[in-house]
């Protein structure tokens, strides 16, 4: 596109103005207000609100559970993507279409049905309960909800890469006497890493901010199963606006760092595959 000018077309001022207007009103000004509100706190007060023991416990759970969920997503996502792309079996197209269910299903519905499945009387929870494992109202429940919500990210990142992979490379490796295992590990895997990492980061970023599905299944016990977004809602219910804003700024900071990281990853990925 470089060097090409489309100045003949009308409407640049109108559309650009409208875009910036909506963006400012809906996104930038509210975000600025949140920032100002958090900055109205003195530095000591901000630090105090952002690092209460309850907040620290919430960050720990949010991070730990998000990391665990994204790891589950990466492992199973890679496997499912491989199976969907490489093998042909009855019901493959059907499964492929269902992969996006967590994207389309409202998070409240996901939370509701997972809580019912994994409660001690649920279809799945009753098999776990005798083992002393509680799928609902526990830290594990948070991981389950986050893993459900994040599952499509890895699959949808890896799938197109796997589809476009040049199979001749694998043939060459096989011709040269590499076993299948060695071919997969040394020829296929290196080209999948960037996509897998991007999918992992996307799932992780989504998990950090997730709220709807978790409130149903976690039980929201302070210090134990309370994630950071839930704590923000608690602070709001206590009319502690400063405290809520401080936590929100911390969460936003983390989200933006992840956003930048994901942008870099995607740029690296597209260069890697082109």
């Amino acid at each position: 596109m470089a060097g090409r000018k489309f100045n003949v077309l009308p409407g640049f001022g109108l559309t650009m103005g409208f875009t910036l207007l909506v963006l400012s009103l809906v996104v930038l000004i509210p975000m600025g207000v949140l920032w100002v509100r958090a900055m109205e706190l003195s530095w000591g007060e901000f630090w105090h609100q952002a690092t209460t023991p309850r907040a620290l416990a919430a960050y720990r759970l949010t991070f730990g559970a998000s990391l665990a969920a994204a790891t589950v997503n990466a492992v199973f996502g890679a496997m499912v993507a491989w199976v969907l792309v490489r093998y042909d079996f009855a019901g493959r197209r059907f499964l492929d279409a269902l992969i996006d269910v967590p994207f389309a299903l409202p998070t409240a519905v996901a939370g509701l049905t997972l809580a019912s499945l994994f409660s001690d009387q649920g279809w799945l929870g009753r098999w776990l309960a005798p083992l002393g494992v509680h799928g609902a109202y526990s830290g594990l429940g948070v991981v389950i909800a986050l893993a459900f919500v994040g599952q499509p990210f890895v699959i949808r990142s890896v799938q197109p890469v796997l589809q476009n992979l040049d199979r001749e490379l694998e043939e060459v490796a096989a011709t040269l006497g590499a076993g299948r295992c060695r071919t997969v590990c040394q020829v296929v895997a290196p080209s999948l890493w960037p996509a897998l990492l991007t999918g992992f980061a996307l799932a992780f970023a989504r998990a950090i901010g997730e709220y709807g599905s978790v409130v149903f299944i976690s039980g929201n016990l302070p210090y134990r199963t309370e994630i950071a977004p839930v704590l923000i809602v608690m602070r709001l219910d206590e009319y502690n606006y400063g405290g809520a804003a401080a936590l929100a700024v911390v969460l936003l900071g983390i989200s933006f760092s992840l956003l930048i990281l994901i942008n870099l990853l995607e740029r690296w990925t597209s260069r890697y595959y082109s």
């Binding site: 207000v33 970023a205 923000i232 942008n263």
Partner: peptide, 26 residues
């Protein structure tokens, strides 16, 4: 990037932003 921003904001934080603008204490 600015247009994509809402996707990386936690929904709860989004709601909070509007409370801080339009709420009684906002």
């Amino acid at each position: 990037t600015l247009i994509d921003l809402p996707f990386s904001v936690s929904p709860v934080v989004a709601g909070l932003m509007y409370v801080l603008v339009f709420g009684l204490q906002g």
